[in-house]
């Protein structure tokens, strides 16, 4: 594998129908770089969740906007950056969701951020001059937690 680091980038319109393309992009490049399938499953889901949040919340369904994705594959870890210019995610209002409570309240949303946090080893949010960025990292060692 060597010590090289490769970054793949993708820009898609802010539409939910683009999510399949995003997932195919992640799977294709991660497989080409020999990333283990358990990591690919986790990355594909976390990236889908982050992009869906941008499309639905940051851009509130405006298809004129764009979602920017960069995935860097390093020998020991994969780093993902997803950038938008919409409404920033309010971290102060976030609390870990409870599926039972959400079900009782008949809510369909609120699980995406939790999925990202459970699957990734590190999650950071940045907001600068109208640009929001979520960055997350998954280490490539084998693991018992998260996805088998």
């Amino acid at each position: 594998m060597g010590q090289v680091s490769i970054t793949y980038t993708l820009v898609v319109p802010s539409e939910t129908r683009q999510l399949a393309q995003v997932r195919n992009f992640v799977t294709k490049h991660a497989r080409q770089a020999n990333v283990a399938e358990e990591h690919i499953d986790a990355l594909r889901l976390a990236i889908d969740e982050a992009c869906a949040n941008v499309i639905e919340h940051a851009y509130q369904g405006n298809p004129e906007k764009e979602v920017h994705l960069a995935m860097t594959i390093e020998p020991t870890r994969i780093i993902v950056r997803i950038r938008d210019h919409g409404c920033p995610f309010d971290r102060t209002a976030y609390r870990r969701p409870d599926v039972r409570e959400l079900s009782r309240k008949r809510k369909s949303g609120g699980l995406g951020v939790d999925i990202i946090r459970r699957l990734m080893d590190k999650v950071e949010y940045h907001n600068q001059e109208g640009t929001n960025e979520i960055r997350f990292v998954r280490f490539r060692q084998s693991r018992q937690d998260g996805f088998r």
């Binding site: 869906a52 369909s108 609120g110």
Partner: peptide
């Protein structure tokens, strides 16, 4: 072949009713 939180959300939205 695939499910994300949006899919899981459908179950949460209907189970109580």
């Amino acid at each position: 072949d695939y499910i994300s939180s949006a899919g899981l959300g459908v179950f949460m939205a209907f189970i109580e009713e």
